[in-house]
Design a binder for these strands. Structure first.
Length: 586
RNA sequence: GGGGUCGUAGUUCAGCUGGUUAGAACGCCGGCCUGUCACGCCGGAGGUCGCGAGUUCGAAUCUCGUCGACCCCGCCA
C-alpha cells in the first residue's frame, strides 16, 4: 500500500474530470450502507468526495468494514452523477468515484465526538482531543483563514519595505507591565530568563541598528489571568518604523489591514477615523468603543446644576458630572426590566442609575420624579434627544466613572436589544492617550502604554507641572469594540527617557540594571521611531466570527493556563530541579 | 484574589418541591435495503449521575468541601 499515490485531493474533482482515473487518500467522513450499494464520503483538508462501491462482492465487503475516521485510499473512475443524484451542497457534488479498490491505511477507534457533525462539544473534551477537534470543518476553516491572514500580512509588510527579523524568546525580565514567565538558567545559578511580553526593546534597538523597518509575527507571553480574548501566549504582528510619525504608522497599518481583510474576501475603507481618547471615554465610556452602536453619552450636568434633586446638584457642585444616553425603543420596558437595569448598574460598581421616559399619555415618568420634579426631567429628555418610545438612563459621579458605567450599560443593552449589526466592521484609531495613569496600589504614576512612549510635543512642559494632563503619541486600533492593536512613537533621546523613568519612580539604580544597555544604546545616534503591535489571534477571531481566540489557535490553553492535551504544566524530575538550582514547596 | 454558570450514557441534553427500574436525540453494535448524501427501517448494548463528606428512612435532586471547564471583575505597561 505504500505505492498508493494520491492523484487528487478530496476537494479537487469536477465534472470536467469525468471518465478519468483517480486515487484519493483521506479519512472516512460518513458511510451510507444501502446493502449492495455503499456510499463512502472521503474527507481531507480540501473537501469531501463521494465514493461509491457496488457490483463487486469483495469490494462491498471491504466497504462494509469502514468506520468513521478510518484512513483509506480509494482508486476508481470519476463518474458524472445524474441530475437527480448530484449534490449541490458539495463542491465535488457533480461527480463521484466508482471504487475499484479500497485500501484501509489506518483503522480508528470510535472518536469521543463526531467529526462529521458541527454539534457543539464541551470545550474540555475538544481540547483534550485537539487533533480530532481540528479535523472538524469549523477549525479547518479557522486555521486556513489564519494562514491566509498571516500570509497577507507578511506580503503587505514586505511590499512596504519591512525586514522580518526574529528576536529572542529567552530574554530579560524587566519591571513594569505584566507578570513575566520565567525560565531558570542552569549555568547561572539563581538567575532567570524571562519570556518576552513583547519584543519592545529589541525592536527599538533594531531601529538604532539602522534596520529602518522591522516586522515579525511574534509570540508574546504574559503570566496574567486569562479571558476569552487573552491567552498566556499569543501572537502579534509586531512592527517598528524609523523616522516615523503617527500618520506614517497609520498609513502603513491601514494598508496592512486592507490586505488582511482582503484575505477574508472583505474590503474596508481607509483611512480609519481617529477618535481622541478623552472623547471616546466621554461619549462611549470606553477606550475601545464599539462604534457599530449609536447611543452616545452626552453631558446633562447643566440641567441639574441648580436642581432641587440634591444628589445630582451636589455632584455637579463638587466638580462631578451628570451624563445620560438614550436606549431607543426602551420606553416600553416593564417596571421590572427598568428596576433590573438599576440593579445591574449597582452590580457594575455604579452608585446608582436614574431613568426617565414618557408614559403613553406624554407625562414624564422617572425614578426621581418626586425628588426632581417633571420639569428638569423633561429638559433632560429633550437634551439627549429621547423620543416618545425611548428611555433615557442617567448616571452621576466623577466624569470618567459616570461615562464608564453608562458605557457598559450601553454595550449590554445594545447586545440584548439586538442593535448590533454583526456583519458590520467599524475600525477606528483611538489617539491622544494619557501618558500616565495614577496607581492607587503603587502610590505613583504608571505608564499607561509603556515607559518608552513619547509625550506629545505640546505637552512636554506639563511633565514638570501636571503629569496627569500629559498626553502621549500613543494610539490603539479598535475594531467593533475590540482592541486589536496598540503602539506609539517612542522616545529617542536619552535625557527624556531618563526623565520618564524618574517620573515613573524607577530609581537610577533600577533603570541602570534593568535598562542600562538600552539607555546606552540611545546615546549612539537613535533615529526617531515608532511602531505598533496587532493582535493576530483577536483579528482572526473577529474575521472568523468566533467569540474566543481559542478557536483560532491550534493548541490553546484553558482559562487556568493549562494544556489539556499534553497535560502541561507538569512536575519535573528532582534531577532537573537540581540542575536548575531550584527548590519547590510541593 | 473575588463573583457567577455548568458538570447525568461516547456526545448534546431532560430529569419538578428528595421517593422504588435515571430518560431522549445523535453516535455505537447487529440485521434488512441498488442512488444515498444528516439515507431509511427493525433490533440491541451502553450510566461510579465529576469526586468526597454531611442531612435524611431514602440523595442525580438538599448542604458543605473539592476538582475541572467556561464567563465576568481585579489583573493584563
Amino acid at each position: 500500500m505504500s505505492e498508493l499515490a494520491r492523484t487528487h485531493t478530496c476537494g479537487a474533482l469536477r465534472a470536467a474530470d469525468r471518465g478519468g482515473e483517480a486515487t484519493l487518500l483521506g479519512w472516512v467522513h460518513r458511510v451510507r450502507d444501502l446493502g449492495s450499494l455503499i456510499f463512502v464520503d472521503v474527507r481531507d483538508r480540501f473537501g469531501v468526495t463521494q465514493v461509491v462501491a457496488r457490483d463487486d462482492e469483495a469490494l462491498l465487503a471491504q466497504a462494509k468494514r469502514l468506520r468513521p475516521e478510518f484512513v483509506v485510499g480509494v482508486s476508481g473512475t470519476v463518474e458524472l452523477r445524474s441530475d437527480e443524484t448530484l449534490n449541490r451542497k458539495l463542491a465535488t457534488g457533480e461527480i463521484e468515484i466508482a471504487a475499484r479498490e479500497i485500501t484501509v491505511l489506518s483503522e480508528a477507534k470510535r472518536p469521543p465526538f463526531q467529526i462529521a457533525d458541527e454539534t457543539p462539544v464541551s470545550e474540555d473534551i475538544r481540547l483534550k482531543y485537539r487533533y480530532l477537534d481540528l479535523r472538524r470543518e469549523r477549525m479547518q476553516r479557522n486555521l486556513q483563514l489564519r494562514h491566509r491572514v498571516v500570509m497577507a500580512a507578511r506580503r503587505s509588510l514586505d511590499e512596504q519595505g519591512f525586514l522580518d527579523i526574529e528576536t529572542p524568546i529567552l530574554a530579560k525580565s524587566t519591571p513594569e507591565g505584566a507578570r513575566d514567565y520565567l525560565v531558570p538558567s542552569r549555568v547561572h545559578p539563581g538567575e532567570f530568563f524571562a519570556l518576552p511580553q513583547s519584543p519592545q526593546i529589541f525592536k527599538q534597538i533594531l531601529m538604532i541598528a539602522g534596520m529602518d523597518r522591522y516586522s515579525q509575527i511574534a509570540r508574546c507571553f504574559r503570566d496574567e489571568d486569562l479571558r476569552a480574548d487573552r491567552q498566556a501566549e499569543f501572537t502579534q504582528i509586531d512592527l517598528e518604523v524609523s523616522f516615523a510619525t503617527p500618520d506614517l504608522i497609520f498609513g502603513i497599518v491601514e494598508r496592512l489591514m486592507q490586505a488582511i481583510f482582503a484575505a477574508n474576501d472583505e474590503s474596508i475603507e481607509i483611512p480609519f477615523p481617529r477618535l481622541p481618547y478623552a472623547e471616546a471615554i466621554a461619549k462611549y465610556g470606553s477606550d475601545k468603543p464599539d462604534l457599530r452602536v449609536e447611543m452616545a453619552i452626552s453631558d446633562v450636568s447643566g440641567v441639574f446644576a441648580d436642581s432641587r434633586f440634591r444628589v445630582f446638584g451636589d455632584t455637579v457642585a463638587g466638580g462631578g458630572v451628570v451624563r445620560a444616553f438614550v436606549v431607543p425603543g426602551a420606553a416600553r420596558f416593564s417596571r421590572r426590566q427598568v428596576d433590573d437595569l438599576v440593579a445591574e448598574a449597582v452590580e457594575l460598581g455604579g452608585s446608582g442609575l436614574v431613568w426617565v421616559r414618557r408614559a403613553p399619555d406624554g407625562k414624564v415618568q422617572s425614578s426621581i420624579l418626586k425628588a426632581a420634579g417633571p420639569e428638569p426631567l423633561g429638559r433632560v429628555l429633550a437634551a439627549v434627544g429621547a423620543g416618545a418610545d425611548d428611555l433615557a438612563l442617567i448616571a452621576a459621579g466623577a466624569p470618567d466613572d459616570a461615562s464608564r458605567l453608562l458605557g457598559q450599560l450601553r454595550l449590554r443593552l445594545a447586545r440584548r436589544q439586538g442593535l448590533i449589526d454583526e456583519r458590520r466592521r467599524v475600525l477606528t484609531w483611538v489617539v491622544d492617550f494619557p501618558m500616565f495613569d495614577w496607581s492607587e496600589t503603587e502610590g505613583r504614576y504608571m505608564a499607561m502604554h509603556h515607559p518608552f512612549t513619547a509625550p506629545r510635543d505640546e505637552d512636554r512642559d506639563r511633565l514638570d507641572t501636571d503629569l496627569g494632563a500629559v498626553l502621549a503619541k500613543a494610539y490603539d486600533l479598535v475594531l467593533n469594540g475590540n482592541e486589536i492593536g496598540g503602539g506609539s512613537i517612542r522616545i529617542h533621546d536619552q535625557p527624556l527617557q531618563r526623565r520618564i523613568f524618574e517620573l515613573l519612580k524607577i530609581s537610577d539604580e533600577d533603570a541602570r540594571s534593568q535598562f542600562g544597555f538600552f539607555l546606552e544604546a540611545l546615546e549612539y545616534g537613535t533615529p526617531p521611531h515608532g511602531g505598533i503591535a496587532l493582535g493576530v489571534d483577536r483579528i482572526v477571531a473577529l474575521l472568523a466570527g468566533e467569540a474566543s481566540i481559542r478557536d483560532v489557535i491550534a493548541f490553546p490553553k484553558t482559562a487556568a493556563a493549562a494544556d489539556l492535551m499534553t497535560g502541561a504544566p507538569s512536575s519535573v524530575s528532582p534531577r532537573q530541579l537540581r540542575e536548575l538550582h531550584l527548590h519547590t514547596n510541593s
